[in-house]
Simulated scan of single mutants.
Amino acid sequence: MDELELLKKDWKKQEDVLPRLSYKEIYKMILKKSSSIVRWIFIISILEFLLWASLDVVFRLNGMYSNVEKVDMGLFSLIASIASYGILIYFITRFYINYKKIKATDSAKVLMENIIKTRRTVKRYIWVNISFFALAMIATMSYALMFTETFQNSSAKNQLPVWLIIVVTLLVTSVFIGVIALFYRVIYGIFTRRLKRNYGELKKLEI
């Protein structure tokens, strides 16, 4: 008899001694865990919003924003900031709605559906943020090269080759995207994996 069979035999002996949890009790435990996870996703998204807002304020107070205006990119920067804040506010709202829905769930089937929706929302949030950052970097480079007076009026001697600017921008963008993707994978990935585990436990209850 192998070790696994011995463990199973020993477990069966203890089944009568161990407390048995009802379907309702197990469901309540999973509901509580899922609600807590989604609440933390909501809280972290707010903290992320405050972080970017704080960096933006510091950026402007330190006079670094004036350098952006010097190269005629003030309006472009403003539009990009409004768009990024709009994305963050939208997903914060979605996370809050998901949290309220899960908290008020009264059946395992509905809870499973809400867990799936929350995981999808988190995945969309990650991909939208990464895509927006990549597009913003490429758009910034394109705008600077084609529309700003600083680049258009600079002499050929002082001006860097366009191909070099493109390569450097793409490299910097790739590094930043990698860092952001890693951050999201570590932070939000922990919670989505826990939600997936809860979903699996609920599925077993429904069988």
Rank of each mutant, 00 (worst) to 15 (best):
T121G: 00
T118Y: 01
V58R: 08
L195F: 04
V172R: 07
S34F: 01
S142D: 07
Y27C: 01
I26P: 03
D56W: 10
S35E: 08
V128D: 09
S154I: 12
D16S: 06
M112E: 11
V167P: 00
S34K: 00
E15G: 01
D16V: 01
L88C: 05
E113W: 02
F76N: 03
E15P: 01
W11H: 01
V58A: 11
Y27N: 02
L145M: 14
T150F: 10
L135E: 05
S107C: 08
I30S: 04
A80K: 11
L145S: 03
K123D: 12
S36A: 12
F59Y: 13
S45D: 08
N129I: 00
R94Y: 03
I37V: 14
V167A: 12
G63S: 01
K70G: 15
G86T: 06
K103H: 08
I97F: 08
R194C: 04
G63K: 03
L88N: 09
I187G: 00
T121C: 08
R39W: 10
S142W: 04
L75T: 14
L78M: 12
S107D: 15
I130D: 03
D106K: 10
W52V: 12
L145I: 13
D16P: 00
W163T: 08
I37H: 02
G200V: 08
V38P: 05
A104G: 00
A53E: 05
E15Y: 03
G178L: 03
I97M: 05
A139T: 09
L4N: 06
I44M: 04
K117C: 00
L51H: 09
L47T: 03
Y125E: 00
E206K: 14
W40E: 15
I165F: 10
K203T: 14
A181F: 09
L205D: 07
L195H: 05
S107G: 10
L18C: 04
Q152Y: 11
F76E: 07
D56E: 15
K203W: 12
R194Y: 13
I43N: 05
L182I: 12
K204V: 10
N67G: 13
V68M: 11
I43Y: 12
L47S: 13
Q152S: 15
I166G: 06
L164Q: 13
Y90D: 07
P161T: 05
N198A: 15
L202N: 07
L111N: 06
D2K: 04
L205M: 15
A134G: 03
K196P: 01
D72K: 11
V128I: 14
M141A: 07
T150Q: 13
K103D: 10
K203Y: 14
T121K: 06
R197M: 05
G86H: 09
Y65D: 15
S154T: 15
D16N: 06
L111D: 02
D56T: 12
Y23Q: 04
V122D: 10
V110A: 12
T121W: 05
V162Q: 14
S81P: 01
E113V: 09
K109H: 10
S35Q: 07
E113R: 12
E3M: 01
I126Q: 12
D106M: 07
Y99M: 04
A139K: 05
A104Q: 05
E25I: 02
K103Q: 07
E206M: 14
K101E: 12
V68A: 06
Y90I: 07
Y199I: 00
F91V: 06
I43E: 13
D16I: 00
S154R: 13
I166Q: 07
I41C: 05
A134K: 06
L160F: 12
K117W: 07
K28A: 10
E48M: 11
T140Y: 14
D2Y: 02
